[in-house]
Design a protein around this nucleic acid. Sequence first.
DNA 1: CCTTAGTGGTTGAAAGTTAAATCAATTGAT
DNA 2: ATCAATTGATTTAACTTTCAACCACTAAGG
Lengths: 184, 184
Amino acid sequence: MRVSLNVNYMYPRDMTENPRWLNDTEEHSWRAYIEGTLSFLEKLDRELRAEHGISNNEYEVLVRLSEAPERTLRMAELAASTSQSRSRLSHTISRMEKNGIVIRKSCGEDGRGVFATLTEAGWALIVRASKTHLRGVRQYFVDVIQPEDLKTIGEAFSKIRQGLGGDAHSFNRCPATIPGREEN
Amino acid sequence: MRVSLNVNYMYPRDMTENPRWLNDTEEHSWRAYIEGTLSFLEKLDRELRAEHGISNNEYEVLVRLSEAPERTLRMAELAASTSQSRSRLSHTISRMEKNGIVIRKSCGEDGRGVFATLTEAGWALIVRASKTHLRGVRQYFVDVIQPEDLKTIGEAFSKIRQGLGGDAHSFNRCPATIPGREEN
DNA sequence: CCTTAGTGGTTGAAAGTTAAATCAATTGAT
DNA sequence: ATCAATTGATTTAACTTTCAACCACTAAGG
């Protein structure tokens, strides 16, 4: 991800001329939100990359596969659930295949189809990586916020998400079946 | 930006085995936040790109330059204030220079230094683009949230930002001196 | 069957980003 | 002065993402 965003300085006289400009309170909140969010997301990304050598994008692919029956998904389905183009996924899977993380299999029923399957190495990787991810989400986000504020945030962003239509974009999902279970 | 992130499915049995796993409420809030945020940021990015042909990164560069005295900044300063490497900024400015948006000037006092200056076309561009940006921030974020919730969000993310150290990462800043003023 | 349109996926080139190497100018110590 | 270390910026190459073109296969209609 590379996200690179910006914030907002606000001066009274602007307000007079553009009534839609943000007022001081709005500006302060917007700025805290956007700066905090970007620092946070970058932090998660850096940790994942430093500790496991994978990007957020690859992490997400791993999560989806790890949750799927047989740890296998059709390319199209994987692309959709990770919110990326088929082209991009194709390149990503090629790289991961080269690294022994996944393998491709042809799909019998549909001659056009291709399956991506997690290898054992891939499973081991997501088991490790999900711990890093969960730790980050807790340490920098969940554990920092008061429970009632967290609830408020959840409700507010549900509305935001709705207002944007159902582009269920996703980030840093944790595996549903916690991979760590099999380790201990 | 390209940010590509992921969310978190949570099941009770995971909780028993990993006490640090998110509980239902935490998981719901986290998921709403991360999905909402990513959809939102992508939306802003797409609008800026569609309406003005610039990325968030370029938008940020424009904002900083438009706010600076003489609409001019040293490369190093510009890189720091837009949270990017000097290398990346160098590439970005080269592209923008090719498009007539900025020009480089050598810095007399320090023989090593280089100034980047906004051209008239660049100024006209930021005047237009900042309106798109502000509209998006209002329409999808500020106007969607109750004022008291917005305040809560501001405070929560201030804490998050602090917890991450001062990496003042920034996104979609609006120009301080609203460029639109000179148009009417 | 045969044609046509649509789906699933890959490919290659262009554009953008990152990381390391390079280079020139400045600073600071001797 | 001189030399080493540092700073400011660019360059190069590797890597990732995007975009458009493409190919193989399926589905639907005559």
